[in-house]
Nucleic acid binder design. Structure first.
Lengths: 373, 373
DNA sequence: TTGTACGCGTTATCAA
DNA sequence: TTGATAACGCGTACAA
């Protein structure tokens, strides 16, 4: 706990509070010639109108002079609220999450809440530990980016009545608020883009189907392909959202025959696809087009620059925080599901398929402006 | 605060604790037929040997059955320790910091501490707010990644006796522990690498000189150049650690005449250099070699892959956390300065200078294995 | 409008 | 070895 060994600046008030530590409510009250209870009321926004204006002014002046800051711990003990929110992410080191967390922190900070984070590494044991740690810390609510489609820990926590918002990933059969990207539309637009370029033989390297992003995107891919009368059978599910998994998955697809385009479940998988293509002596986009998902930082500087579905990560975080704040303030009680619009950012990794390139695009990657949202 | 509306699982103990909420120490004590003080002693590692072994066992059994978890808020109020550490970073969204934060969190978590983070955006006002927020939250200590060389806020906080460790950036004239990379050696090795390739006209796009990383690397650059009898005059200081600033700085250098190699203060500045070169019709590494600093994720997949100085970010965080833990436990009282070794990762952005390339490397980027640490 | 009294859940001090 | 009691700093019925 931070201590102040001595008062700095300002001539100390007539009565020196305590001996050395930071001033307490009683110190303020005493210096203002008023009872602690009155000082408390004067300092608290919600109760300040119970106090005569001049008293309020005096108390506040004294508090400012003494540099008084309410002890949040004592307050929490009294109010049973910690003004603290827990955030669970798989891995802060994954570029997808920092912007989300930042959005959450910025939004919650403006409401006076502080954020505790825990990394779960997609490990059930670590996840359980993380939830328990948050509970032990008495967080007022939870923002969860680690949800599985079928998630017992989540269900149990929700059943306990813990205010909770899911972000990025959602879950099934659970009446809880969530904020995610409109993945289905994002995938549909991607398929559309590739078809417009002339592709018909399109494969999908899907993310793990235990998480909503993997499952939703896979389903959307199949639907979009069928809608256009194309085969939706070239799908391989990757072991996880990693470059290695993406590489392995695409290699498996290539074994049969290389498609002319691949839609990856996310950008890391797409990077793995780059590796697989290089190993197979195939070039992107000349032989095979590749599309990612999330539009991670730097992804536009790769070789070739990756076409990807842009997810507004920061806004995802902000919106999740808002939903939680609404819930914590008691304004909203019924869960809401928010889908944020995505946009396709077309870069150099997508081009017409080889068969067409002779007449259509003459070897130059097609540059298409992103569809308006 | 998390509540349990009802007891799940387990047949409840004979006496139902409270009405519904989570069990308190008194509940455990009562159920174990013992006084609350005794229960407290039995449950606390440090004091359990003051209690008869059988009593300890009984209390612990009851606690486990009831699912008792000590209320950290009440404990903090009593002990004046929050088991919480504040981490101040410029911007979590900058790829440099997530690994550091993760390292800190992992190390502190294993000691039972929780981390609060705040982003300062290198803005003095936000920084002051961040420090104040941490103080208000009663953190037991601080890990600071936002230090300026001359940092009043830092000095004031240190003077107040707050346990504190600096990470990545250090400060001047302040007796405080810090963990950083051995930047001077890193830069020296970079210069050596370029000179080995045949470069003599080497420029430096320095980071802001108000922060230690900028100043140290700039000084190291000048020293290394002079040591080799080369001119150390081609230095431009960038406005900040951003791509835009790097671009502007290199453009300024190019105005005179393009150097054959540029050492950037960090990877983002190096990316800006890529932009400046492209705009100027110069190719990397054919016309100008570029070296970055930090070895950010994905940087090896750029075009061309960026040669960079690898900084062990995660370890930086771990080490900083260790230093703070040592301080908090009272083991170490005298500040320590830790420098972690760096390594140069040579990739495709560095090659012999144009004049030499005719005879030496025939246009192919030179690939040099990294020096052994 | 302000003061009194109490309790939030825990640990520390003292006494038994 | 254990129990009684107080106190950490604050908020809030209730009384005045």
């Amino acid at each position: 706990m931070l201590r102040r060994p001595d008062q700095t600046g300002h001539e100390p008030a007539a009565t020196l509070p305590h001996v050395a530590g930071r001033p307490t409510l009683r110190d303020v009250a005493q210096a203002a010639g008023v009872h602690a209870a009155t000082a408390s009321r004067a300092l608290n926004e919600a109760t300040r109108d119970l106090v005569r204006p001049e008293t309020v002014a005096r108390v506040r002046a004294v508090a400012a002079e003494l540099g008084y800051q309410a002890n949040p711990i004592a307050r929490s003990l009294k109010t049973s609220r910690s003004e603290t929110v827990g955030v669970l992410v798989p891995d802060l080191t994954n570029p997808l999450f920092p912007p989300i967390v930042r959005g959450i922190e910025d939004e919650l900070a403006s409401a006076g809440y502080t954020v505790l984070t825990a990394n779960t590494d997609n490990d059930p044991r670590r996840t359980a530990i993380g939830f328990a740690a948050m509970q032990a810390r008495q967080v007022d609510g939870l923002i969860v980016a680690t949800a599985l489609l079928d998630d017992p820990v989540l269900r149990e926590t929700a059943a306990r009545g813990v205010p909770m918002v899911l972000v990025n990933r959602t879950t099934e059969r659970l009446d809880v608020s969530s904020v995610a990207g409109d993945d289905a539309t994002g995938i549909a637009r991607t398929v559309e883009h590739l078809v417009d370029l002339g592709h018909t033989d399109i494969a999908h390297v899907a993310g793990p189907l235990e998480v909503s992003t993997g499952a939703v995107r896979e389903r959307a891919f199949r639907a979009a392909m069928r809608d256009r009368g194309l085969s939706d059978s070239r799908v391989v599910v990757a072991e996880g959202y990693s470059e290695a998994a993406g590489r392995a998955a695409l290699l498996e697809i290539i074994t049969t025959a290389p498609p002319t385009a691949v839609i990856a479940g996310n950008d890391l998988l797409a990077l793995g696809c780059y590796d697989a293509l290089e190993e197979s002596g195939l070039r992107c986009p000349d032989d095979v087009s590749v599309v990612g998902f999330n539009d991670m930082p730097l992804i536009g500087r790769l070789r070739p620059p990756l076409t990807s579905v842009r997810v507004p990560q920061y806004e995802l975080g902000v919106e999740a925080a808002r939903l939680l704040l609404d819930r914590l303030s008691g304004r909203t009680l019924t869960p809401r599901v928010v889908l944020l619009p995505l946009s396709l950012v077309v870069r150099g990794s997508t081009a017409p398929p080889p068969a067409r390139r002779g007449r259509a695009a003459a070897g130059r990657p097609a540059v298409v402006s992103p569809p308006t949202p």
